[in-house]
Design a protein around this nucleic acid. Structure first.
Length: 863
RNA sequence: GGGCGGUUAGCUCAGUUGGUUAGAGCACCUGCUUUACACGCAGGGGGUCGCAGGUUCGACUCCUGCACCGCCCACCA
């Protein structure tokens, strides 16, 4: 056999990719049982984002675990999907094609689109829009597919899905309908968190804090029938003054006690509002008395509900102030003309402009402002994909009941093993901190339509309480394009007809079903039963509150189950300044050039060095280290295999291992296998790698290969040469397999040089069994436990002597005298010939005696 | 404000249930063309393990407090 001279990663990778594809080495076997199957709930990457090295990192982690499990004989279910629905894609499609989705339009199958079209945005139906999104994401998916394949991720590509395809829509809509049927999903009209740019409701999980500049404005409210003329209220939202419905202070607050039960008069709008006592009012904040508006913040909503205050909504869906008229019912004012004169200047303005305007007006009006404003910086709530602060706007939305299940959901979290374990706490705290039911509906387009129609009564009013739902076998449907059974399209939005729900589901409502999507759930209950609950969910920590949480919710609501037994959490890749890599930060490193330069195996090595849950600073040096390991493995393999290649494998069984040095190194291999296996069983691929790498480099290459080398060059097929050859084969074959999860290309290459036909092994290293102690059981233990250690002590002493004399390792040594106590001396007697051969020692003298400190005392005589 | 992580060599990180002299890789220094590999080999320098207490025969490891860094959550009149 002619082995290649140099290791070239790029050339071999493509060859093995093709080979794996042809042989179906990563395919799931649907006939095998659940207990011998390892099931992964793979995260479907958001395809509209840009690719960066962080992707390689966490996806490699999953693959290490999966490849180990596969070598443990497990039937692997490792699907891959693409998360393509959602806002980022919508935005890109709108810009690319200059289109705008209009939910009132109908699907036009003949519509054609051109990129970069000028002029007014073309209004198109939801179905047309979704098709367009679908088209665009297909290109992105291709980029991911190429990258994942290059990285050597061992997916079963037959299980590929995309969250917007018919299958996912079917599963997602079915989930919604089943929960509706169970009463776990309901519709309600209530104030919800609302993004004024995307003009949609959002859920608590999508809210983030953002530091923004603001100011306290001190407004003088009049007091009816009071001893004092006014109270001063501090507010950061003066533009909401027209929406003020009450004024509150703490019941024990002496400053305001006398005012409770009386009415305050709002400045500028002259609206009488009740002054009430409430323990939630904090005397320390602002001036200790607060105005309740519909709605400034979550507490306003609570007070509004508790005290059944009237609704005075002024902020519309677009974040602009709506027209209202003071003096009309619900808009009391002691001076409607003055109020309307002021409000007339605000109506139509955005909240931020309205704020500026009302402050101007207040400044120009006597007795409104009590003192100059106080500039502050404070955190406000914004949509995680948005920019401007959220508003609370009363709208009709769909919700899933989760508030009544917090305890149960924490219980579900406790049944799951989290890796690292402390990540469970994040989950728990998130569930404990939930404030509202999960808002499921979004006023968006590229998503899974809510599969509901409503009756329209004879007066043309939509009757939201009279729902029409499709049957399971009709799914997926789009209620804006499909008519419900028993109706025809011309009855849409007509008196006596029907109307389709215009909204789509939260993307998480679909993403939370990745297990059910992959198992095919309702479509194939038997298959679902074989795969669910799954074994692991790999993901990153920032989506514990979304993806992990919602998936646990769905599994609980549908089947009262946990979705998976383990959650494994990867850390982030940070840039060298320890900032998270993200497109918006402009600090991303694109992955393809790295794969070109270092090869997939080296990049995987870099990923494998990082433990679960630990953020890692990007360091290109690690790719070089990985590449070095690959080169070393290549060269050592070439050498080791070359030393036994000409010998009939039948002669190289465990019974051939007769020399003490060989038995000693195999004794060292045993704990390595045990410890690496234990680490991998805990998903600690980083620890396993560190153990294997250390053994490979130091014990195998630096020491054992050199010790055995002289015997392997013996001309006759002596017992010593046979023993060395058998040991090289046994140890090397184990090490290649233990490195296979990390460096799949190179190990497959090496495997194919000589191990494919071994009994008990597989054609592919990736289907060959992970090493076990059983493989070594037939090799006897060395005479004593310290053979290897004592031998290395001697070797190191002689090496040091050579180095101190600035000599080459091949320089001859006249003599070495070794002093040790009897049992150790005897062990050394069995390996001394190897030591002599390794270090070119002419004469060695073993003397019984006290070595002083240490196991062995060594005296080296160089010349 | 609450919580969760972290703080070990110049850098990046290991350190198994407390037990000799705290490890690795990178970087640095010295030497070595040695028939697998100079992408290598051999050797070396470099750390009072964030700070202060405590428990213990013994603490990087356990407890308490503090400081700093990161993250999560909350507040945000």
């Amino acid at each position: 056999m002619e082995l290649p001279k140099k290791y070239k990663a790029g050339q071999t990778e493509q060859c093995w990719r093709d080979h794996w594809k042809e042989t179906g080495v990563y395919a799931w076997d649907s006939t095998r049982g659940r207990d011998e199957t390892f099931v992964v709930d793979t995260p479907p990457p958001t395809v509209s984002g840009s690719l960066h090295v962080g992707h390689l990192f966490s996806y490699a982690h999953q693959d290490f675990i999966v490849r180990y499990q596969r070598m443990q004989g497990k039937n692997i279910f490792f699907p891959i999907g693409w998360d393509d629905n959602g806002l980022p894609t919508e935005r890109r499609v709108q810009n690319m094609y200059n289109v705008k989705c209009d939910a009132h339009l109908h699907f036009d199958p003949d519509l054609e689109f051109k990129r970069g079209r000028k002029g007014e945005p073309l209004r198109i139906s939801r179905t047309n829009f979704i098709n367009l999104c679908d088209e665009v994401t297909r290109e992105d998916e291709e980029a991911f597919r190429r990258l994942w394949t290059r990285l050597g991720l061992s997916y079963d590509w037959d299980e590929e899905y995309a969250t917007i395809n018919d299958h996912c829509r079917r599963i997602s809509q079915y989930s919604f309908l089943e929960l509706l049927e169970k009463g776990e999903v309901y519709q309600a009209e209530r104030p919800v968190m609302w993004d004024i740019d995307f003009q949609t409701a959002i859920a608590q999980a999508e809210v983030v804090d953002k530091e923004m500049r603001g100011a306290f404005h001190y407004l003088r409210f009049g007091v009816q029938d009071g001893d004092r003329a006014h109270v001063v209220i501090a507010t950061t939202r003066p533009e909401l003054l027209p929406a003020c419905v009450a004024v509150l202070a703490h019941p024990d607050d002496e400053r305001y006690k006398p005012l409770f039960g009386k009415k305050a008069i709002t400045p500028l709008f002259h609206a009488p509002v009740p002054i009430m006592a409430d323990p939630q009012a904090d005397p320390e904040k602002g001036t200790g008395i607060v105005m309740v508006c519909t709605f400034g913040d979550q507490t306003d909503v609570e007070w509004w509900r508790e005290y059944k205050l009237p609704l005075r909504q002024i902020v519309g869906w677009d974040g602009c102030l709506m027209p209202v008229t003071f003096g009309e019912p619900g808009w009391e004012s002691a001076d409607p003309d003055a109020a309307n004169a002021v409000y007339g200047q605000l109506a139509g303005l955005s909240v931020s402009k309205a704020q500026k305007k009302i402050v101007e007006i207040a400044e120009a009006t006597d007795g409104v402002l009590d003192r100059p404003r106080l500039d502050i910086t404070h955190a406000v709530r914004v949509f995680d994909k948005g920019d401007r602060p959220l508003e609370l706007i009363p709208t009709r939305q769909w919700f899933a009941r989760i508030m009544d299940k917090k305890e149960a959901l924490i219980g579900q979290g406790n049944k799951i093993q989290w890796h690292p374990a402390f990540m469970r706490t994040r989950y728990e705290h998130w569930v404990e901190g939930l404030k509202e039911d999960w808002c499921l509906s979004r006023q968006r387009f590229f998503g899974v339509p809510i599969p509901v129609w409503y009756r329209v009564d004879d007066d043309g009013q939509v009757r939201y309480d009279e729902r029409i739902v499709p049957s399971a076998d009709e799914l997926p449907i789009d209620p804006l394009d499909d008519a419900p059974a028993g109706f025809t399209e011309d009855q849409r939005d007509q008196p006596g007809g029907f109307s389709g729900d215009p909204d789509v589901l939260d993307t998480w409502a679909t993403s939370s079903l990745t297990p059910q999507i992959a198992t095919k759930w309702i479509l194939d209950r038997e298959r679902h039963g074989k795969l669910f609950p799954m074994d692991i969910r790999p993901q990153s920590h920032e989506i514990i509150r979304t993806w992990a949480f919602y998936t646990i919710v769905k599994a609980y609501l549908h089947e009262n189950e946990i979705p998976w037994r383990h959650v494994v959490i990867s850390g982030w890749i940070l840039d060298p300044d320890r900032k998270k890599m993200s497109k918006s930060q402009g600090n991303v490193v694109t992955p393809e050039p790295l794969l070109d330069e270092f090869g997939a195996d080296s990049v995987r090595y870099w990923a494998a060095r990082a433990r679960l849950g630990v953020d890692t600073a990007y360091d290109e040096q690690m790719f070089r280290v990985g590449k070095r390991l690959c080169t070393k493995l290549f060269n050592a393999s070439k050498f080791a295999i070359g030393r036994f290649a000409g010998i009939d494998p039948a002669q190289l069984g465990p019974e051939a291992i007769t020399v003490e040095t060989d038995r000693a190194v195999i004794r060292e291999l045993r704990p390595l296998i045990e410890r690496a296996t234990a680490a991998f069983d805990e998903f600690d691929y980083a620890q396993a790698l560190s153990l294997v790498e250390d053994f490979f480099w130091r014990t195998f290459c630096d020491n054992y290969l050199e010790l055995a080398k002289s015997r392997t060059y013996e001309e006759e097929l002596t017992e010593g040469r046979l023993s060395a050859a058998a040991t090289l084969r046994l140890v090397h074959r184990a090490l290649v397999r233990m490195m296979a999860p990390y460096v799949p290309y190179l190990t497959e290459e090496v495997w194919h040089w000589c191990y494919t036909d071994d009994p008990g092994m597989h054609e592919s290293v990736h289907r060959s069994p992970w090493p076990t102690l059983d493989e070594l059981a037939a090799v006897p233990e060395p005479a004593g436990p310290q053979t290897y250690e004592a031998t290395i002590v001697v070797v190191e002493a002689v090496r040091k002597a050579k180095t101190d004399a600035n000599l080459s390792m091949s320089a001859p040594v006249k003599s070495v005298s070794v002093t040790a106590k009897q049992p150790v001396l005897e062990l050394l007697g069995a390996t001394i010939e190897d030591i002599k051969g390794m270090l070119h020692i002419e004469q060695a003298e073993l003397t019984e005696g006290d070595p002083g400190e240490g196991l062995v005392a060594v005296q080296t005589n160089l010349s």
